[in-house]
Design a binder for these strands. Structure first.
Length: 417
RNA sequence: GGAGGGGUGGCGGAGCGGUCAAUCGCACCUGACUGUAAAUCAGGCGUCUUCGGACUACGAAGGUUCAAAUCCUUCUCCCUCCA
């Protein structure tokens, strides 16, 4: 409501907006024609995770409402390391690791954004293109002179680190300057007027807005999304195994589905708005379901979210796997599985080892504790002996042994082809 | 430059020669209850183990001692006060 532009209306209705440098100015700008906006992603891991999803959705909405989204890979800035929201300095990544990470991260974008030459076609950029070749003295004279140390010290990313008595190295101190420069550079190259990001990026983004104004009189805008927490206050995007990755290679579509399926009741509406493209009317209906009914809303959420990230087929398969596993208690073919050689199975493989190999536990000790604590099952049968050995005759009619750690984590042991 | 205080497990924070793999809280895992939810309750929570133990850990490196997270020395980082 209240906005002229479809983009801001959608974002505000769906709960994407935390702060904006100038709502009216941005609104007017968006009404004046096709604009371009970007979000930067540092290549600190081989895949993005659900924490990044909110900004990807923003870019996607930006495109859907007729504008041009830019995904900026931080090939250059990753070599420096963003101090925002971190207590410790990030270890410096080797350049080749960064290149590999970038390759992994790119996979996810194409699911959410369509790249191309048309006016609202997305652009994939990489700040290494301009940062890697910067001349230090020139950069200091052209860009550095616009930054006041006094102000930088008051920025949260810096201030918090200092207040918490954590060291802040000079290289990290420069991160903000480089990110600011990115914004100016993208405006020069593509006319980008808006940078979006998480609320922790507010300082960095605003400082880019200011740099653009000081250097060239550009009119730039900042828009941030709220920091996402679950209804019980935990930071979003963690599971037992760690981060919820977007790349299939790091987290199966089934596990991704399960992540959403296990959302807390109180989060369902919020997540539907943020992480699906379902209409607000439909979402209202879904979130009004009470009691056990709300499970239907969670299924829809998981299905839609998985569809966006892994495609229709993978989503249907994940939903079906979950249905079989949880609603029928059957062995679903498509559960995550590991392969074991027939010869090994005939000899017998300790359950502990299988649990570990299947990734259901992190160590032998943990496997033992799981078993002793009554949380381990083989073919749905509770196993209490931690020296239990699995053998080939446990293979079910599907040709697999089903392992379970707790009620929700399941894996199949299949015979290696 | 001077004087004090401090760096302990993912985080917070006890311990201050043996009974310390280290009280406790949070986070996390499992079980019960449920709706594959939340809340609650119970158990677990360094690695390995032939379940007897073994190994690695309390900023870093040395030393004293039968024995150190605990004492000594040096180094290092942080905080406070004085200059």
């Amino acid at each position: 409501m209240g906005y002229k532009s479809e983009f801001l209306n959608v974002l505000s209705d769906r709960g994407f907006i935390h702060q904006c440098s100038d709502f009216q100015g941005l609104d007017a700008k968006l009404m004046s024609g096709t604009q371009s906006a970007y979000v930067g992603y540092d290549a600190t891991a081989p895949s993005l995770h659900v924490g990044n999803l909110i900004s990807i959705m923003m870019l996607s909405w930006f495109q859907k409402t007729g504008h041009k989204p830019i995904t900026l890979m931080g090939g250059g800035t990753t070599r420096v390391g963003d101090p925002s929201g971190k207590d410790d300095q990030r270890k410096l990544l080797a350049t080749n690791a960064i290149a590999e990470n970038i390759a992994g991260i790119k996979q996810a974008f194409s699911k959410f954004i369509s790249y191309g030459q048309e006016p609202e076609g997305g652009i994939m950029s990489n700040n290494a293109a301009w940062l890697d070749t910067l001349n230090y003295i020139d950069f200091l004279r052209d860009v550095g002179k616009h930054f006041s140390i006094n102000r930088m010290l008051t920025m949260d990313s810096v201030k918090l680190r200092l207040e918490r008595e954590q060291p802040l190295s000079f290289i990290e101190f420069n991160y903000m300057i480089l990110q600011s420069y990115d914004f100016v550079e993208l405006h020069k190259r593509h006319g980008t007027i808006l940078q979006m990001g998480g609320s922790d990026q507010w300082g960095n983004i605003v400082s880019g807005v200011e740099l653009g104004r000081r250097m060239h009189g550009y009119e730039l805008f900042a828009l941030t999304a709220p920091l996402l927490t679950t209804a019980s206050g935990a930071k979003m995007g963690k599971t037992a195994q760690g981060a919820v990755w977007l790349n299939e290679a790091m987290l199966s579509a089934y596990d991704y589905y399960q992540f959403w399926r296990n959302s807390e009741d109180a989060d369902v509406g919020k997540f539907l708005r943020l992480f699906t493209f379902l209409s607000l009317d439909e979402i209202k209906k879904l979130e009004s379901l009470g009691g056990a009914e709300i499970n239907e809303a969670k299924k829809k959420l998981a299905e839609e979210a998985t569809r966006l990230c892994h495609g229709h087929e993978a989503a249907m398969m994940a939903a079906e796997t979950a249905r079989k596993t949880f609603e029928e208690g059957a062995v679903a073919e498509s559960l995550p599985s590991i392969a074991v050689a027939m010869t090994e199975l005939q000899k017998g493989v300790p359950l502990i080892q299988l649990l570990k190999d299947a990734g259901l536990v992190a160590s032998n000790g943990e496997a033992r504790r799981l078993i002793q604590g009554g949380g381990a099952r083989v073919n749905d049968q509770l196993i209490e002996n931690d020296n239990y050995v699995c053998t080939a005759d446990m293979l079910g009619s599907e040709g697999a042994i089903k392992l379970s750690a707790g009620k929700k984590k399941h894996a199949l042991i299949k015979v290696a082809a």
